[in-house]
Design a protein around this nucleic acid. Structure first.
Lengths: 332, 332
DNA sequence: CTGAAAGCGCTAACAT
DNA sequence: ATGTTAGCGCTTTCAG
């Protein structure tokens, strides 16, 4: 059945076996150009017979597009990024593109190094989170002749394509919601803001809006580590120890908020009467908790889909605001 | 500063600019072979000056190894797989490898198609979840001269490398734990078992062990969809409606278990006295809930790390059992 | 220590 | 409709 599969069957061998020229095999395989049904069948039979698998490395070198899309993301633990990947990968696969990824750990220098090594694969596009990049990263990206998509943030100047929503607007809307609900002693529990610049944008606008509304932030508790349920629990505990009279707390995201909610559950703190809780992200789990979590739903998967579609369509440079939706749950 | 960056600077141009031969540039860049410090500096200066980014597509074609590792995973929503990716990608990046991935949606046919298109990139290795693959997939993988790593399961015959733990053993240990704790009317709440073959192995062994222990499964509720907190909540609700007298429930994973736990919280069901809950996976969130979730911790990140290391080392074929750890929480 | 030249496997004109 | 040929940008003998 299979003869020399060990070292890789080449197109030339298929051509020989089918008794046609190499370009004919190439045309048939890519279904491009013209050929008779007869030759097509002979080529396909030879392919089948030899177990030929086209070599896209060679194909890419000979033509132009690599059909490789590079994702340089901060983390694989944060659902935000895996959701974007998820949305994008489906669209990409449907169009014959392959997704390559690397994780920066929220480190701009690492991002720069990873972008450099991604560029070595001559990707059709590279997708990054947000706008804050090292100078070298920007320089390389500008010089490279590939598309650049910045996702999850639109508060800034895009390099090329940007798909996301305004984190400033998200912070503002969250603050307005709290204010409307009548909370006046509002606290914040968050994770490392230096690394997560999007969370820090939300926080800044949240505070500003609160101040303008006459109820400046009562207190804040920032955990130096990454966001997690456990850190949210600890964060709220510490905040309350210092400022027991807050009537509401805004968390940097739903994981943190869930931790805060659990703290309340185990300490007999009534939510939202004793303390209101507002999260961010709109995770599924927040809809299954004893009380539905109040949060801001972000269109993460859609962002990935739209970003991928723009790349596939080779759309002109643009910024797409996909917005968000405030979910009025039962915790605030 | 940069002259013809638009179309990509080539190694030949660097060579010309540095006044040396192409092979010398290649040697310097890969730090392989010999050259004087003087020529090295000149080459590096030229690289810097022109903003040269090596083309790995060409490099791969000319040499052999692609330094690409392909991941063909069932889902990006299930933390199990992203954790494996996370563990693997760090190791891979450290060794100059790039991770490529594709999502099968638990569909063996899609897996086959994706493996085929991955193979076109001539990856150093391809990583798959578990042992259940379409015949075509196995055939291609055997024919391809790349390493194959099956992760997360070791209950079967490995194609090449396998890193994981025994899901049968996990089911057995979970059942024995329930039995030891004295539960006798034990139920099961799970998600689609046809798709998740590993969950189905755990369930089978769980039932078998329970039967052998004289307390056969009291009832089961299988949700046809994917695992989620919400589906776990609904699943437990339905199970209890039909069989109210169960004293413990084993869930297909922690997401489902969390849903069950939330159901208990909101319906005044005392855990574990009225109803005990046992999950599977050992998610972080289970340590922050009002009561720590009893579960089975699986070494997902480590599996990724070990798998990547084996590939990097080009280790001989072998199966590595990384085991798991039963976490005695407060819910069972 | 360094350069010249022959491919790697495929695609894309260009013929025919 | 199909074959021929010249590269794509790099690595790798092989000389020198």
């Amino acid at each position: 059945m299979e003869f020399k599969q060990q070292e890789g069957v080449t197109l030339a061998e298929v051509a020989k076996a089918a008794g046609v020229g190499e370009s004919t095999v190439s045309r048939v395989l890519r279904n491009h150009g013209s050929f008779t049904t007869k030759t097509r069948d002979r080529v396909l039979a030879a392919v089948q017979h030899l177990g030929y698998v086209p070599n896209r490395i060679a194909g890419t070198l000979a033509s132009a597009g690599s059909r490789l899309v590079a994702f340089v993301i901060p983390s694989l633990s944060n659902i935000v990024f895996t959701d974007v990947l998820r949305g994008a990968s489906a669209t990409l696969e449907d169009h014959g593109y392959q997704a390559v990824f690397a994780v920066t750990d929220y480190d701009p220098e690492k991002e720069e190094a990873l972008v450099a090594s991604m560029l070595a694969w001559r990707p059709t596009a590279v997708m990054l989170a947000g706008y804050e990049h090292a100078d070298g990263t920007v320089k390389m990206l500008r010089a490279a002749k590939c598309r650049v998509v910045e996702v999850l943030d639109i508060d800034g100047v895009a390099l090329d394509l940007a798909v996301g929503f305004s984190n400033h607007a998200a912070g503002r809307e969250s603050a307005n919601f709290m204010l409307q609900r009548g909370y006046r002693r509002i606290g914040y529990v968050g994770h490392d803001l230096n690394r997560d610049t999007r969370a820090s944008k939300r926080f800044a606008s949240f505070c500003e809006t609160l101040g303008a509304g006459g109820a400046p932030l009562a207190d804040r508790q920032i955990h130096p580590g990454p966001s997690s349920v456990e850190n949210g629990r600890i964060g709220l505990e510490q905040l309350l120890a210092r400022t027991p009279d807050v009537d509401a707390v805004y968390f940097s995201n739903d994981d943190m908020a869930l931790g805060g909610y659990f703290h309340c559950l185990s300490h007999g703190i009534m939510v939202p009467d004793d303390l209101a809780i507002l999260g961010y992200n709109g995770l599924d789990i927040g809809r299954a908790t004893p009380q539905r979590l109040s949060t801001l739903l972000t269109p993460r998967v859609t962002i990935g889909q739209v970003a991928a579609q723009l790349v596939v369509d080779d759309a002109p440079s643009q910024v797409i605001d996909l917005g968000f939706e405030l979910i009025e749950g039962e915790t605030a």
